[in-house]
Design a binder for these strands. Structure first.
Length: 215
DNA sequence: ACATTAAGTGATT
DNA sequence: AATCACTTAATGT
């Protein structure tokens, strides 16, 4: 049986000093999350900061008209930059986080945020680095929205999904993909069909198999 | 066998 | 590239 402490150690052991790990172990709550769970919705007040142990989570942002944009994915070893900024400013969430794959997270009450930033150098740089890498990822999203065509975006998206799940087989339907890329189901279906004819992928119901040599 | 949901397609904007 | 209207195919009950 792996304890919570083991889990913290395997994923964050190299990042944090022992004292901090023990403190995390003491205050954090380990939670299992199922696929599709919305852990944070728009307007929620954030009370916990999530440290991802296992699985992946996708983070969306919604505009006034209800259009959603996929901002970034969180994987094990990541934390959510949004919750960081929410914690610091005590603001409400302007994002939605949905579990992509069954996950495990450590929930840390936000009052430790400030304390630890002063107390632990490693925590400070962890927070800082998280901000940095999320920022970079969001710049990529902006690039892709501004400059890439739908077919390129779709291909990239499929690749991203493969990276995250570590598999060439993706169980998704076209509607979901359309939602994630804020496109429409028909457009996605047509582009996928074209990719299949080009031999890049194989399409089944609720399943897309990527050709390894094309990735 | 029937209902439901996913995917494919042509036409229109 | 999006939307509509419709068809066809796969899957669940």
């Amino acid at each position: 049986m792996t304890t919570t402490l083991d889990k913290i150690n395997t994923h964050y052991g190299y990042v944090f000093e022992n004292e901090l790990i023990e403190e995390i172990n003491y205050v954090a709550n380990l939670r299992k999350l199922n696929e599709g769970d919305a852990i944070i919705s728009y307007g929620d007040t954030i009370k916990y900061m999530p440290l991802l142990i296992k699985g992946s989570i996708k983070v969306f942002r919604e505009d006034e008209k209800g259009n959603e944009v996929l901002l970034y994915y969180l994987e094990k070893g990541d934390t959510c930059a949004m919750s960081l900024s929410c914690c610091l400013g005590n603001k409400k969430s302007t994002i939605q986080a949905v579990v992509e794959e069954e996950s495990e997270v450590l929930l840390i009450p936000i009052n430790y945020m400030n304390e630890w930033i002063c107390k632990y150098e490693t925590w400070k740089s962890f927070v800082f680095n998280s901000y940095n890498s999320r920022f970079d990822e969001m710049l990529k999203v902006i690039d892709s929205l501004a400059f890439m065509k739908m077919d390129e975006r779709l291909l990239k998206h499929l690749n991203d999904k493969c990276m995250i799940t570590g598999s060439f087989e993706l169980s998704v339907n076209h509607r979901e993909l359309a939602l994630e890329l804020n496109s429409s189901r028909e457009v996605i279906s047509r582009l996928l069909k074209k990719m299949e004819l080009d031999g890049k992928i194989v399409l089944k119901r609720n399943l897309i198999v990527l050709n390894e040599s094309e990735v």
